[in-house]
Amino acid sequence: MECVVQGIIETQHVEALEILLQGLCGVHRERLRIHEICLKSGPNLGVVASEVRLLCDLEQPEPTWTVRHIGGAMRGAGAEQISVLVRTMVESKASKNVLRLFYALGYKLDHELLRVGFAFLFQRGAQITVTVSSINKMLKLHATDEAVPVTPGIQLVEVTAPASSENYTEVVAAVSSFCEYLAPLLHLSKPGISTGVVPTAAAAAASLMSDGGGTTL
């Protein structure tokens, strides 16, 4: 299982967000460049249609592959109350011929995208991962070098944390308390509920960047 919240931020405020995240997390940022391939099961494969995502980490010298299946979100009154989406997620490292394997199994390519940005990974009640990335689409198949942004000027911020059925309440608390700190810059909500950009973002970004954002003090 994983807990996830998402939000969007304008690209010009990403730098301020980075400063804020750097301060909040205290860790180095990691560069992010992930080629994500979404596969859907063919017509005669299994009882229910399934969707599998293959993630190829292009940042590594040797691209590493991960296969990820995202299941349904937790439902019910309890899930409604919390501000974080809890959903099942299965993930595994894979060898580089995983795409061929899934094609052979009968999966079809649904879409593919390229995430470029950075991530902060830190321990704070839970193992929280904050990724700030711009989503790019590829005009040609698998042409990651010629990707163009889907929404120019807006980047996706995603906060995820792995959880289990026993401890997800703590993880949810950790994630949502972390999200509060980002509040002036962006608002994070469950995936699927769009909240838009925060009107105070510009002011918050300006105050964060007030000392030049890394320029000489």
Binding site: I19, L20, Q22, G23, L24, G26, L208, M209, S210, D211, G213, G214, T215, T216, L217
Partner: peptide, 15 residues
Amino acid sequence: FNKSGLPNRMSCEIY
């Protein structure tokens, strides 16, 4: 000096 790897003042303060 700043190029030599001093982190951002603001983020340190926040931290």
